[in-house]
């Protein structure tokens, strides 16, 4: 989902940066509040960022014959709320832009918007909606659909900037969607599964931290006990 350096016209690059900026400010303030009021949650917060670090470094093969990577931003979004991921995701993207020439500074705003804002918000929304279906299912759907949403946004961003000369915006969406969204489907499933694995471990060993951040991981057991 990285739009390469210089590959958005200046106007688009500036617009996405402006759109992303307030989310970064809100996210930074939220992180400052968490670290001040719940210092014991700092390590969990860092781990959520670490998960995004690992997953976005893994370029995986897809059935379309090309490679792409998961984002890892769904986990932090469901644990801490989506706003913190704007900052954590931006750190990942900045690391890759500066050290790997992957993505870029001019496209940082657009890439933050897709990976660190829309993805986490979709993940968070899906988690809230799907939570009554069970923890595992909700976590899986949240991480998977958040991942797919990120790549759908990248598709839209590129289509807006580079409409197809013959078939216009619709043609460009089909073209970039074929490259990004289609490739991403199995990878999004992988991200969903890995996120469930980590949440399972957290529920088992880190219940106190989860309670501290208000993560609803107990509903299932309570429901079973009531039945």
């Amino acid at each position: 989902m990285h739009i390469m350096e210089g590959f958005l016209p200046p106007l688009h690059a500036a617009a996405w940066t402006v759109v992303a900026a307030p989310f970064l400010v809100i996210g930074a303030r939220r992180i400052a509040r968490i670290t001040r009021e719940q210092p014991q949650a700092k390590l969990l917060l860092a781990s959520a960022g670490a998960f995004a670090f690992v997953l976005s470094a893994l370029k995986l093969p897809s059935v379309t014959g090309s490679c792409s990577h998961p984002t890892g931003t769904g986990l932090g979004a469901i644990l801490f709320g989506p706003s913190v991921m704007a900052v954590l995701g931006a750190i990942v993207l900045l690391f890759q832009a500066l050290l790997l020439a992957h993505g870029g500074l001019t496209t940082l705003g657009a890439n933050i918007f897709s990976m660190a804002i829309v993805g986490p918000w979709v993940a968070y929304g899906c988690f809230r909606v799907a939570r009554p279906m069970g923890l595992g299912i909700a976590v899986f759907l949240a991480a998977m659909l958040g991942d797919l949403a990120t790549y759908t946004v990248t598709t839209g961003q590129l289509a807006l900037a580079f409409p197809d000369p013959a078939s216009g915006y619709a043609g460009a969406i089909t073209k970039f969607g074929g490259i990004f969204a289609l490739t991403q489907i199995p990878l999004a499933v992988i991200e969903g599964l890995l996120t469930v694995v980590v949440v399972n471990l957290l529920v088992r060993y880190s219940g106190e931290d989860l309670d501290g951040v208000g993560f609803e991981h107990r509903l299932d057991t309570a429901g079973e006990a009531a039945r």
């Binding site: 990285h2 739009i3 090309s66 792409s68 580079f162 460009a172 073209k175 490259i179």
Partner: peptide
């Protein structure tokens, strides 16, 4: 085989533009 999607998108841009 198994080219990066980011690079493919870049190529698609330069092809049509």
């Amino acid at each position: 085989p198994f080219a990066g999607a980011d690079g493919q998108a870049q190529d698609a841009v330069t092809q049509t533009h």
